[in-house]
């Protein structure tokens, strides 16, 4: 079965992710990330590059071939790390019901 995030036990991993969104992670954080990044294609968050190496917009995958990617233009980022943190919070909320600040 896939890992179920426990917000009390796993809360301590959030800071580790925030410090280093991309790169080596502890086994426990990696387990949490596998859960957050898993799931079906439909609705999955992706980034769309709007200015090369400078700006990215959050988007969602339609889950079907041929259908447009849905852009969320209010969520614009100037670094990939910033985007990773934003999506982490969105997914954490969806999995645990908890807001992260």
């Amino acid at each position: 079965m896939s890992y179920q995030i426990d917000p009390r036990r796993d809360r301590e991993l959030v800071d580790e992710f925030r410090q280093r969104p991309i790169g080596q992670h502890s086994p426990n954080l990696q387990r949490v990330l596998n859960t957050l990044r898993g799931g079906p294609l439909k609705g999955k968050y992706v980034l769309v590059c709007t200015k090369p190496f400078a700006e990215w917009v959050l988007a969602r995958h339609p889950g079907e071939r041929g259908q447009p990617i849905e852009l969320l233009p209010d969520q614009r980022f100037t670094s990939l790390e910033e985007a990773e943190w934003a999506v982490f919070r969105l997914r954490w909320l969806a999995h645990t019901g908890e807001e992260l600040n």
Binding site: P21, I22, L33, N34, R37, G38, G39, P40, L41, K44, Y45, V46, L47, V48, C49, W56, A59, H61, R65, I69, L80, A83, E84, V87
Partner: peptide, 17 residues
């Protein structure tokens, strides 16, 4: 665009051009 596990494989958000 099609593979469900692509983001997990990359270890980071997929970036589309």
């Amino acid at each position: 665009l099609d593979a469900e596990g692509a983001e997990m494989l990359m270890g980071r958000l997929l970036v589309y051009q």
